[in-house]
Design a protein around this nucleic acid. Structure first.
Length: 584
RNA sequence: CGGGGUGUGGCGCAGUUGGUAGCGCGCCUGGUUUGGGACCAGGAGGUCGAAGGUUCGAGUCCUUUCACCCCGACCA
């Protein structure tokens, strides 16, 4: 491809105030252009990178036995109603109606479609296991798109769906895990595999593949000694025992003229924070229940864990009015002791969820559900009994991980994930089953596996750039060589044309900067910005002894080589995966 | 959805107490240049986000609305 013919151009001013490096560099180099917030044009260069990433993903998915399909982008809304996800997706479904009034969802993920496809084939155990996947545009009505390609409203996702028996599942999950490791390694990305929360998608466990980056939105913890890695939503830690040797003392209600914070309580009673009870009242809009979370005073409530433990999917903080008038308690003095079982006005039930850390302390102190009254010597079991006992504590940096080592906090970009769905969808959807070897219908067991292609592209740029521009790894760069002429001399042009042809015939993708009106400095700046692995320069100077100048994008110095050596040097680094120039 | 901000040629911006739009980059033409973003001369390109209002007159004042950016909430 000749630069003079390439659609799109570099710009010094376009996107100058974008804060995220990948956003700015991809824009300035002419890989992407914004349409509206969270929606991007992929220009020829950007599409080329996109295709190369897809090719790597496809290669490893196929090698792992998955089979590529394409599903419609418009999903019949009845399918989403079948799984009750029209209201509970976690992202606002985008809907569209055709002129006959048929309703569709713009696909944001495709579990229902995959099940619907599979049930059309009335499968048996002989068909299992299998894994189908696609690359397709996904639509998310994000509240707030940001960070260029990092969080968008439309993007190409590779999404895969596996169908198997429960006993076959572990192997499939492991295969996807291994395939993902191989994919990201080939793309030049170091990933942490992080245990995460399944959220609205269902299932019991899942893992995120995260590229460590300051620009990432995922926060997670690593125990570097053991390799334990978990998203902050699910991270667990060892809870130290405090004063379990102490005798239980008589419960006692006392005056407590203090403010509403934990610190106020610790100060007033001159006792440690950990001996105080932290009582946080929530209301779940989905099930119309109050959820009273109780935890040791030196910990915080992890709301994701709380949602899982209580089955409360639409949690919000309770209002002062609800606390005072419906539950007859007092902000800052809420307590499980003598709390009403039901709101006296609303009739809504109060569910008490206790963290397991409550079993590491004796004789706790806390509110009395009355203003300026506290209770001393509170002990679990004797004085109150949680309806649900679970780990609902939020991990913090420095806490001991489940394997004993200290937890280190990291931030990263989630580029892929693998989910165990189990029977979640086969339970919700009709005929999501197969015939077993005794002729009985059985629910199948599912998993799903996603990779965001555009986000991966941005993550690669985040991991591979300097202050001059992008530095693509060899196998995702749109071209292997940036060939630039300097000057308008006829012999320079002829030599460059010859090298362009020779490299192309050798199978090397070359971006040939044939512009005559552009000076050397600008060509060098463009070459750096674009991030092509090799820059080859042809000028009267290099031709003085029949040579060309070649420089790696990350190298400080260039060297002079003859044409044959150039070709050898470049082809030896060429990646052999089935990759082609989609523009020529 | 809450808080803050911005909308003026393709991009980045200026525009005074209201008087009918300008600069830099880019683009086009000609010339001089040519190893890290050159220079000279000429040129094209804007109903100032949209709608309504005040006024003799609105980029500027008022009202409404839309879009985008940043922070938060949310979020495979």
């Amino acid at each position: 491809m000749k630069v003079s013919q390439l659609f799109g151009r570099t710009s010094k001013t376009e996107g100058i105030d974008y804060k995220i490096p990948s956003h700015r560099l991809l824009t300035q180099a002419g890989y992407i252009r914004e349409s509206t917030a969270g929606r991007y044009y992929l220009l020829p260069l950007g599409l080329s990178v996109h295709h190369k990433i897809e090719a790597v993903v496809r290669k490893h998915m196929n090698a792992a036995g998955a089979q590529e399909v394409v599903m419609p982008v418009l999903h019949p809304l009845e399918l989403w109603k079948e799984t009750n996800r029209t209201t509970t997706t976690g992202f606002e479904l985008m809907k569209i109606t055709d002129r006959r009034g048929a309703e569709f969802a713009l696909g944001g993920t495709a579990e229902e479609m995959a099940v619907d496809l599979v049930r059309k084939f009335n499968i048996s155990y002989k068909d299992l296991p299998f894994n189908i996947y696609q690359f397709s545009m996904k639509f998310r009505d994000e509240m707030r798109a940001r960070g260029g390609l990092l969080r968008v409203r439309e993007f190409v996702m590779k999404d895969a769906y596996s169908f198997s028996t429960e006993s076959q599942f572990k192997e499939i999950y492991q295969k996807m895990w291994d395939a993902y490791k191989a994919i990201f390694e080939e793309l030049g990305l170091k990933v942490d595999v992080v245990a995460a929360d399944n959220g609205y998608i269902g299932g019991e466990y899942c893992h995120e593949f995260v590229v460590e980056s300051d620009q990432g939105e995922s926060r997670y913890f690593i125990d570097e000694s053991s390799g334990y890695a978990a998203h902050e939503d699910v991270a667990t830690f060892k809870v130290d025992e405090k004063n379990l040797g102490e005798e239980m003392r008589e419960m006692e209600e006392v005056d407590a003229v203090r403010g509403n914070t934990m610190e106020d309580g610790a100060k007033l009673h001159n006792m440690p924070l950990w001996q105080q009870t932290k009582d946080v009242l929530y209301f779940d809009e989905a099930t119309k229940r109050y959820i009273l979370a109780i935890i040791r005073g030196d910990f915080d409530v992890n709301e994701t864990k709380l949602m899982q433990a209580a089955g409360a999917w639409d949690l919000r903080a309770a209002t002062t009015e609800e606390i005072c008038e419906d539950l007859h308690s007092e902000p800052g003095f809420i307590s499980p002791i003598n709390i009403v079982k039901k709101g006296t006005k609303s009739g809504y039930e109060v569910v008490i969820v206790g963290d397991k850390s409550l079993r590491t302390v004796r004789n706790m102190y806390g509110g009395a559900n009355k203003k300026h009254r506290d209770i001393l010597n509170i002990n679990i079991d004797r004085d109150y009994k949680p309806d649900i006992e679970a780990d609902i504590a939020l991990a913090q940096p420095g806490f001991s991980g489940p394997d004993g080592g200290p937890l280190v906090e990291r931030r990263g970009i989630e580029v892929g994930n693998i989910f165990q769905l189990g029977y979640h969808y086969s339970n919700l959807m009709a005929d999501a089953d197969y015939t077993d070897d005794s002729g009985q219908r059985q629910k199948y067991y599912m998993g799903c596996y996603g990779i965001g292609i555009g986000r991966t592209m941005a993550a690669i740029v985040e991991a591979h750039h300097d202050d001059k521009g992008i530095m693509w790894p060899d196998n995702v760069s749109p071209y292997s060589v940036y060939l630039a002429t300097i000057g308008e001399a006829e012999n320079v042009r002829q030599a460059a044309d010859g090298l362009y042809q020779a490299l192309t015939e050798a199978g090397v993708l070359v971006l040939y900067d044939d512009r005559t009106e552009v000076r050397a400095g600008e060509k060098f700046a463009d070459a750096d910005l674009l991030g092509i692995p090799y820059r080859v320069v042809v000028s009267e100077k290099t031709l003085a002894n029949q040579q060309f100048e070649i420089k790696g994008r990350g190298d400080a110095d260039a060297r002079l080589l003859g044409q044959q050596d150039i070709i050898e040097m470049v082809t030896s680094k060429q990646n052999n995966s089935a990759i082609m120039d989609f523009r020529s």
